[in-house]
Amino acid sequence: MDLETIYENVKRRGIESTTGSQTQTHGGSRCLVLITVGLGLICVLLLVFIILLHITITAERDLIKSYKNTVEEFNQTINSLQDNYTDLMTEKHQLQNNFNSLNKKKLELESKVTSLSRFFISTELKSWSDSRQYCRDRGADLVIINTEEKQRFISSLVSERVWIGLSDTENEGIMKWVDNSTLKQGFWLKGEPNNTNNEDCIELNYNRGKPGWSPLNSWNDVACSEKKKGICEK
């Protein structure tokens, strides 16, 4: 082989070698670019993920905070309602007690009104028998007093001496009421009855404020012909 041929072969191989190196260099650069782009995309995606995660965590934190605030407000509302309920129950009990007290007074007043409607005092001065007839003409009779409570009540109604429905006109010393029942408990003035001058009819002696007088010591026997008003009971 001559020198010219050898030179041509070496030259050709050199060109092929350079071309291959250039080809390999271009391929490596392309891979590096692709890797760089990929890493960039991954970084972008990671950044987006981190941002979204931060937003989500922040939103959840705000939601939890809002929930806690709502729970606290709800608990405060419950406590306030409980206090209001307790106050209302206390007020209810007070109102119930007031109502019961007022109802009791109402019943007492009704009882007094009922009692008052049963009693009336004659408007004319008459003897015991005429006063009794006055009562009977009006569907009543002279009052019968057989309890301490009734004696006190009748005493509170009068402001003068009045006839009551008690006498011993039939049998001296045996006091009987107008319904023919025998006297069991009397409310006499001191020293009465004394039957002075044939005193057979009984008056309720009004001497309120005088020494020795009391609602439970106010009966006196007098002559049945004396003129005075009578207290009638229906």
Rank of each mutant, 00 (worst) to 15 (best):
Lys104Thr: 13
Thr196His: 08
Tyr134Ile: 06
Asn180Tyr: 12
Asn9Gln: 14
Thr70Asn: 07
Ser66Leu: 06
Leu47Cys: 12
Trp219Val: 04
Asn75Cys: 02
Thr114Tyr: 04
Gly14Ser: 10
Glu172Ser: 11
Leu125Glu: 04
Tyr7Asp: 15
Ile121Tyr: 02
Pro211Gln: 03
Ser21Trp: 04
Leu95His: 01
Ile6Pro: 09
Ile78Lys: 09
Phe187Tyr: 08
Glu4Asp: 15
Leu189Cys: 07
Arg30Ile: 13
Thr56Cys: 15
Val44Leu: 12
Leu116Glu: 11
Gly186Met: 04
Glu4His: 15
Thr70Met: 05
Asp168Ser: 07
Ile231His: 01
Val143Gln: 03
Ser101Trp: 06
Asp200Ser: 08
Arg136Glu: 13
Lys105Asp: 14
Thr196Glu: 11
Thr19Glu: 10
Val113Pro: 01
Tyr67Trp: 06
Trp163Gly: 00
Asn103Thr: 00
Ile6Gly: 10
Val10Met: 14
Glu8Leu: 14
Ile121Gln: 07
Glu172Trp: 12
Thr90Pro: 05
Ser181Met: 07
Phe99His: 01
Asn198Phe: 07
Glu4Phe: 15
Leu125Phe: 03
Val37Arg: 05
Arg13Pro: 00
Lys106Trp: 01
Asp137Glu: 13
Tyr67Gln: 08
Leu39Tyr: 09
Asn217Gln: 15
Trp213Gly: 09
Asn79Met: 11
Lys228Met: 03
Ala59Pro: 05
Thr77Ile: 10
Ser111Ile: 02
Ser117Pro: 00
Gly209Lys: 09
Asn98Arg: 07
Ser129Glu: 11
Asn146Lys: 15
Thr23Arg: 12
Thr36Phe: 14
Asp179His: 02
Trp213Met: 12
Leu183Asn: 04
Glu16Asn: 12
Tyr206Glu: 03
Gln151Pro: 13
